[in-house]
């Protein structure tokens, strides 16, 4: 099957969908899902470039001549592990954020933060700097 560049294009569409979810959704879990999609599509890009037409899995065996490129596979094993490590840390943060703010919507958290800052500043103004 000759797919030329279409495979890469599909991967890019996927990547951008993931990115869109990350930057447009306010829900923290959804952001992480988007991040996951984004990472998986980069992984897919690597695996795609490693594919050789008519090749087989890179485990040496009698009777096979053409193997797909093993290097991207190695790299992506590492990348997957890095991805899950990041996700675990992020989820722990989400749990703590929910504990601290009572919501997992980024927009609401930002709102609470802004209110806090404003309160702090107006408070400081009330005490006032006693200009001697």
């Amino acid at each position: 099957m000759d797919v030329g560049l279409y495979n890469y294009w599909a991967v890019i569409v996927l990547m951008m969908t993931g990115l869109y979810v990350v930057i447009s959704r306010s829900n923290l879990i959804k952001k992480l899902i988007g991040l996951n999609v984004f990472q998986v599509s980069v992984i897919m890009f690597y695996i795609s470039i490693g594919k050789v037409k008519g090749g087989t899995a890179p485990i040496l065996e009698e009777g096979f001549e053409v193997y797909s490129n093993p290097v991207p596979h190695v790299l992506m094993l590492t990348a997957i592990v890095v991805g899950v490590a990041t996700l675990a840390l992020a989820l722990a943060l989400v749990v703590r954020l929910h504990g601290a703010y009572g919501t997992i919507e980024e927009d609401e958290i930002a709102e609470i933060d802004t209110r806090e800052t404003n309160a702090l500043e107006s408070n400081a103004r009330e005490i006032g700097a006693p200009m001697s």
């Binding site: 980069v42 990041t86 992020a90």
Partner: peptide, 24 residues
């Protein structure tokens, strides 16, 4: 403060995007 958690999360999302772009 709890805002440290929020900053860390924001940085995590941005940082992971940055890292993944480098990877790409």
């Amino acid at each position: 403060t709890r805002r440290a958690l929020h900053s860390a999360f924001q940085y995590l999302v941005m940082g992971t995007l940055g890292g993944t772009f480098v990877l790409l």
